[in-house]
Structures are given as C-alpha cells and as structure tokens.
Amino acid sequence: MEKLNERTIEERLDKMEGWVYKDGAIETSFQFADFREAFSKMTLIAFECEAQGHHPDWTNVYNNLTIRLNTHDANGITEKDFRLAHSIWQIIHEDSK
C-alpha cells in the first residue's frame, strides 16, 4: 500500500467528522453511555478489523474509546486506514440511522 502525503491526508480528513491527523496517525475518540456500550462497539469494530486485516491502536477507559490508525508496513497513512476509519464511523453511528 502506498503511503499518502500530508496534504492528501488533510484533504481526506476535512471530509471526515471527528478524525484528526496526529503524530503520524489518524485519530478519533468516542464517548458512550457506559462501559457496556463502549465494549459492545469495540467488539463490532474488532470483527471488522479482522475482516479487513487491519488493526487499530486503541485505548478504552470506562466509556471512552480512542482509536489511532496507521499502516505500519508503509510507515504512515494509506488508503487502508481511511477504509477502516469509514467502517468504524459506520459501526459507531449505526444505531442513530
């Protein structure tokens, strides 16, 4: 996968709600009603990550989830990261449709 340049990354992020480019990764955070809801969404995201063969760096503290994406093999951000970010957004927001 080809590493994207910073300009392309920023242009793509302008169209994505809640994601930022920080320290070589694209990052977002979510807050849920409680730990159960956070963990439920993390489980759904985990299955999608496996399906895509791409895995985030993430942290969870009670009802807060922070997700960082980059492609380690490319040493930067690739289309793979944006594809997974889009899928994560869909999973997080699927109940609000």
Rank of each mutant, 00 (worst) to 15 (best):
V20W: 13
Y21F: 14
K22R: 14
K22P: 06
D23E: 12
D23G: 00
G24N: 09
G24S: 02
A25P: 01
I26C: 02
I26R: 00
I26F: 00
I26D: 00
E27P: 09
S29M: 10
S29I: 07
F30L: 02
F30K: 12
F30P: 03
F30C: 02
A33L: 13
A33E: 14
A33K: 15
D34F: 09
D34E: 04
D34W: 09
F35E: 08
R36C: 04
R36D: 06
A38R: 11
A38H: 05
F39R: 03
F39C: 08
F39M: 15
S40G: 14
S40C: 07
K41P: 04
M42E: 07
T43I: 10
T43R: 13
L44Q: 08
L44N: 10
I45A: 03
I45K: 02
F47A: 15
E48R: 06
E48A: 15
E48H: 01
C49A: 06
C49I: 05
C49V: 12
E50A: 14
A51H: 07
Q52Y: 10
G53D: 06
G53K: 10
H54W: 04
H54R: 04
H55R: 11
H55N: 13
D57E: 11
T59Q: 08
V61M: 11
V61S: 08
V61W: 07
V61H: 11
N63R: 15
N63H: 12
N63F: 05
N63M: 01
N64H: 07
N64D: 10
N64S: 11
N64E: 09
L65E: 05
L65N: 01
L65Q: 09
T66N: 13
I67E: 00
R68N: 05
R68G: 04
L69H: 03
L69S: 04
N70W: 02
N70C: 05
N70G: 03
N70H: 05
T71S: 05
T71P: 01
H72P: 05
H72F: 06
H72T: 07
H72K: 07
D73N: 05
D73S: 06
A74I: 00
N75Q: 12
N75R: 05
G76H: 00
G76K: 00
I77Q: 00
K80I: 02
K80M: 02
K80A: 10
D81L: 01
D81C: 01
F82D: 04
F82M: 08
L84E: 01
L84S: 03
A85K: 05
A85L: 10
A85G: 04
A85Q: 06
H86Q: 10
H86G: 14
H86L: 14
S87V: 09
S87L: 07
I88L: 08
W89N: 09
W89F: 04
W89A: 14
W89T: 13
I91M: 12
I91C: 15
I92V: 11
I92C: 11
I92M: 12
I92H: 03
I92K: 12
H93V: 06
